[in-house]
Design a protein around this nucleic acid. Structure first.
Lengths: 162, 162
DNA sequence: CAGAGATAGTTGACACTTCAACAAAGCGTG
DNA sequence: CACGCTTTGTTGAAGTGTCAACTATCTCTG
């Protein structure tokens, strides 16, 4: 924040940081493209289906979806609207809280998920999980978890605003 | 590819994978927002300025920019067009290859980079580098490097098409 | 229990990315 | 040297994400 002296990254740190940017961009783009090409669904849409599939009655409040993916409510509204148009999800007003809306995975959504899951998991393995040894992979998990924890802790608004 | 049995991820792998998605999304979004708020520039635009600053004469061919960031040519054209309109970059036809176009960072671009670099590096440290111990960070670098290598090797078209 | 403020979700405008089609210039082999 | 093929870069449309404004509902406090 304050314009104190900048602590630059050393060469190693810089290299790792750049590897992270390029690698994660490439990885996400690839997984997204594979899903689109083979099942006409984006990675984001797939992730929503996964979360619904893990919920009782394949149902989840819009807010819960947004929260667990750390996407904005607005983004979830747009995405779910598209998926509803495609017949993958249905929306009904929540019974308890009249402001709320429940997203429910349709049978068509369920079937698509079954098919897409294979593609996705294979991709994640081929392009990511199976490339690293267990220890390195675990280390990566630790780092990414602390990134999330720190950002959420530091900026509590992440829970709601985004 | 072939619909053989799916080798699912175990719980640990799944957790790490999800941490990666959520963490990297959160991280990139945060760094992007910080740059926008404080300097009216996106992370992608910033990255272009960095690359130009590292090149002789602060000049780089459009294709080289696209290649090093692994963005599509089209994306680079659009982004550079916006930056040109903002006076951060100038474009001139390449002298040698008449198809080519050189992007040149202006003084205004250079000054913006100086200011933005502090914000960016501080953010990268605070939200990423300084959170992990050296060993975990190095492991992450190894993983992300093999991700890139594997994807580029497997799909040579990445060099040009994207 | 009234009013203020928080929360859920949607909407529309705008920004950015992708994709396919395209023009212009270089390259390579007969 | 001419033809086809590749490479460079741009364009415009369609898709997706962000942001700010808005409605409706809920909750808390005096």
């Amino acid at each position: 924040m304050s314009p104190t002296e900048t602590r630059w990254l050393d060469a190693d740190q810089q290299a790792t940081w750049r590897a992270f940017i390029v690698g994660s961009t490439l990885l996400m783009d690839t997984l997204d493209r594979e899903l689109r090409q083979e099942h006409d669904i984006s990675l984001g849409e797939y992730e929503i289906l996964v979360r619904l599939s893990e919920s009782p009655d394949r149902t989840l409040r819009m807010a819960k979806i947004a929260e667990s993916m750390r996407h904005s409510r607005s983004r979830v509204t747009h995405t779910v609207s598209r998926m509803e148009k495609d017949g993958l999800i249905r929306r009904i007003a929540a019974t308890d809280d009249k402001r709320g809306v429940d997203a429910i995975m349709t049978d068509k959504g369920w079937e698509l998920l079954q098919a897409a899951a294979h593609t996705h998991v294979s991709g994640v393995r081929a392009h990511f999980v199976d490339l690293a040894d267990r220890a390195d992979y675990a280390a990566l998990g630790r780092v990414m978890n602390s990134v999330s924890d720190q950002l959420v802790a530091e900026n509590p608004t992440f829970e709601d605003i985004r």
